[in-house]
Amino acid sequence: MMVDERELWACANQVIRQHGAEASSFAKKRAEELLRIGDQKGNAVFLAIATRVDQLECLVAPGTPH
């Protein structure tokens, strides 16, 4: 994977800011789209982002700004 850990966490945070409660669903759907068009690296990156979105959402209380 060409994206380092810090970048993955920053991307996950940005996805949460942009998509709110739908962030995890968005990231997973994007991963599926990338896999469907044959972009395995993009798929892996978005799966990693989705994992981090899920982890961040477990840490942050609902209604708390990110």
Rank of each mutant, 00 (worst) to 15 (best):
A48L: 07
L59V: 12
G42F: 05
G20K: 12
P65T: 09
A27S: 08
R52L: 11
E32K: 11
S24A: 06
A31D: 06
A27Q: 01
E7M: 08
A21E: 12
E5M: 08
K29I: 05
L56W: 04
Q18M: 05
A48C: 07
K29Y: 14
A48Y: 03
V15G: 00
A10I: 03
A27H: 01
Q40I: 11
A10L: 03
G20P: 04
P65W: 13
E57F: 03
K28R: 14
F46N: 02
E7L: 09
D39Y: 04
L59E: 13
G20W: 01
D54I: 04
G38I: 06
E22R: 14
D54R: 05
C11H: 04
N43L: 12
F26C: 03
D54W: 01
L47K: 09
V60W: 04
E5Q: 10
L8S: 01
A21F: 05
K41W: 14
A12H: 00
D54L: 04
K41T: 11
D39H: 07
T64Q: 12
A44S: 13
A44P: 06
A10S: 03
A50L: 07
E33C: 05
K41E: 14
K28C: 10
P65E: 14
C11E: 11
V60H: 05
A61Q: 15
E32C: 13
N43I: 13
H19T: 03
V60K: 12
E57L: 12
F46A: 01
G63F: 13
E32I: 14
E22L: 11
A10V: 04
C11T: 10
G42Y: 04
G20D: 09
C11N: 14
R52E: 02
Q40C: 10
G63W: 13
K29S: 15
A21N: 08
P62V: 10
R30L: 08
A50H: 07
L34T: 10
R6H: 11
M1W: 07
D39P: 00
D4S: 07
